[in-house]
Design a binder for these strands. Structure first.
Length: 257
DNA sequence: ATGGTTGCTTAGCAA
């Protein structure tokens, strides 16, 4: 199974790029974040023509997540459903070819100390609680998406510049570690231990031309899947050319039957 | 250097 995750930063603005990406890589599963559309405006028909089904959890203007798959997603669940009043569409889960796939868009957090940062840290805790309630670490599970955390300094081109921002702050990193402590492993990093691999570059300050990148998009897998990871890449070409998202897609190969 | 850019929605927010 070839699985990918990509924060497209508006599925309407990125529709042509999305279709071209699917042609180029033909992933079995593609998790999307920041759709910025309601379900009815998602380009279902054109994706179906490409051979992809979709599980969508959309929202007007902000957020929105989806799972595209070449076989029909089963047992689709939207949102954390933990009783917290929360209108933000940041999680969709579905079973695809016997693998539980969970596409997440973790809150960015804006500024350390802000209400948005508190929401980010709380959301990471809620995600861990969601896994505890609904799943077991011995299942075949992929949690992937824009986690909005660079887990270590090796994941940051210029650590001094990003130190103590919401993407690198100790509390955000601890939140991601606590999430993973449930039983998730960084599948991309297992395959690609080298430095210099990033998935996001700020539009501002010419982040991409200056090589000022961070690895904040992740593919986390449970132990049964970790051993099946045979390769991983980030498609930096998606960050180039006309109208790129600020994120590049992250891909892994899983040796599932 | 409180800058810079993009998307959604139309002046301001979020990233």
């Amino acid at each position: 199974m070839k699985l990918a995750t990509w924060n497209v930063n508006s599925v309407r603005a990125r529709e042509e790029r999305l279709l071209a990406f699917l042609d180029r890589h033909r992933p079995d599963v593609l998790c999307l974040q920041e759709l910025k559309v309601v379900d009815g405006d998602f380009p279902l028909v054109r994706l179906r023509e490409k051979g992809y089904f979709a599980a969508i959890h959309g929202q007007k203007t902000y957020n929105g997540v989806a799972i595209l798959a070449r076989s029909e997603p089963e047992d689709v669940v939207c949102g954390l459903r933990d009783g917290v009043e929360d209108p933000q569409a940041r999680l969709v889960s579905a079973r695809v070819d016997g693998v539980r796939v969970i596409s997440v868009y973790v809150p960015n957090g804006s500024e350390v100390g802000s209400d948005k940062y508190a929401y980010k840290l709380a959301w990471l805790k809620r995600l861990r609680a969601y896994l505890e309630q609904h799943h077991r670490p011995d299942e075949r599970i992929v949690v992937c998406g824009d986690i909005n955390v660079a887990p270590d300094d090796i994941d940051v081109a210029r650590p001094d510049e990003w130190k103590d921002t919401v993407l690198c702050h100790a509390d955000a990193r601890a939140g991601m570690r606590e999430l993973c402590a449930w039983g998730l492993f960084d599948a991309f990093r297992k395959c690609r231990p080298e430095a210099g691999l990033y998935s996001w570059w700020d539009y501002r300050m010419l982040g991409f031309p200056k090589g000022n990148g961070l690895r904040i998009d992740h593919i986390l897998v449970t132990k049964p899947l970790l051993e099946q990871c045979s390769g991983a890449e980030i498609d930096r070409n998606e960050r180039k050319g006309k109208q790129p998202s600020d994120h590049a897609p992250v891909l892994i190969d899983l040796a599932t039957s």
